[in-house]
Design a protein around this nucleic acid. Structure first.
Lengths: 209, 209
DNA sequence: AGCATAAGCGGACTTTACCCCGCTTTATAT
DNA sequence: ATATAAAGCGGGGTAAAGTCCGCTTATGCT
């Protein structure tokens, strides 16, 4: 009588609508940019009611959050299962450096959506299970275990490194509507100084720089 | 005919209203918290029109920005002219560490206002003339000049250190409406790992830790 | 197949940030 | 002292986020 464990799978109409809304949202972003995506407009264009949109995503930021999640999954795949140094197998310090470079590129690629996903009520899409923070924390733990690092409070360090990595893009980078062409040039100084920070923090065994 | 240089000083009625609005805003924050400060409510309680509020502050975030500026001035004073190691006179690396500790405490003290001042349109109160970034940049320059630091791109490094310092509070720290009592305990791990980062980045001459 | 129930749905309603523009007040030049 | 132009002021108007609640539909059980 009470199907306890599972909260009853998502209804098929709900799933269809969710996908539909995400799809329409991407179209609207491609056509007019994130600023022009309104809840009313999205609902109307998808042929649904506004209540439905809010039920699925809770808040405007939630839409962009869901959008980012889709793309993030591919990124996580290469981090968790791809080839070294990004994927497993390489030295943890090398992986940290590679992760930072890849993450900066990813965030710049998606920066419009990332920023639209910020919500001034509620901390950040990232409070507890921020994947960057978790991954950085894990690599710090491994580095520590292998003797590259002798620091006590790895948790706080991970928080601050995550902020150092993502903060510039989330907070400071001009969100000028110009998403001109090549995000790479902007990313290089950030990536280089990320590498510097990591190398100095962890006495890297092979300072090949 | 055209008083070129100066853009004609602020009118006295405007100045009076500005102070009045700031004062009333503080009262409303003290009574019901930042969330309850609405533009209409503020205008009405100050006995002014809504248009006036927007003219003075441009946006809701602008109010909190102005409020923070007032308190920030005192903080800057102690940084620019107070006793070492926060003020001038101490070793730049020691000053960096002291600055981080002081800044974390300041931000936690004001975190409700700080967060209310964030605006999802427009980068951050901080894009170009973020005082933290500027101060950090200056101290890095001094450290470099004194040979504590041999890094090329001090500008990017300053951006990332600023994010490491302020990001956790701006982004990740739970903005739970509970601003319970003593923000200090939360600040200590952050401050300690800030010190760690700075010390490792700059070959501190006297690692007294 | 039929039924009970939880989930989904829609759109009117409320709240709030922000815009606009005609009127008033202040500061300056003569 | 008076004229004039710029700045300030007010409050009604718009748009968009988010809430509510009665109606509809899928789902799982028998």
């Amino acid at each position: 009588m009470v199907p306890f464990g599972r909260p009853r799978a998502e209804r098929v109409d709900a799933a269809r609508n969710r996908l539909q809304l995400l799809q329409v949202a991407r179209e609207m972003i491609a056509e007019h940019g994130v600023e022009k995506v309104t809840m009313d407009g999205l609902a109307e264009r998808a042929g649904l009611g506004k209540g439905t949109v809010f039920r699925r995503f809770g808040t405007r930021a939630g839409i962009f959050h869901a959008l980012l999640d889709e793309d993030d999954r591919a990124f996580q795949q290469t981090v968790m299962g791809g080839p070294p140094p990004l994927g497993p197998g390489a030295d943890p310090v090398q992986r940290l450096i590679a992760y930072g470079r890849a993450r900066i590129a990813f965030l710049l690629d998606h920066h419009a959506i990332v920023r639209a996903g910020l919500d001034r009520n509620q901390p950040v899409p990232a409070g507890e299970h921020n994947l960057s923070r978790l991954h950085i924390r894990m690599l710090l733990g491994q580095a520590h275990h292998q003797g590259h690092l002798d620091i006590a409070d790895l948790d706080s360090l991970a928080v601050q490194l995550t902020a150092a990595l993502e903060g510039p893009i989330l907070l400071y980078l001009s969100m000028a509507p110009s998403v001109p062409a090549d995000p790479t040039p902007a990313s290089i100084p950030l990536a280089d100084s990320w590498q510097t920070i990591v190398e100095r923090l962890c006495r890297t065994p092979s300072p090949e720089r």
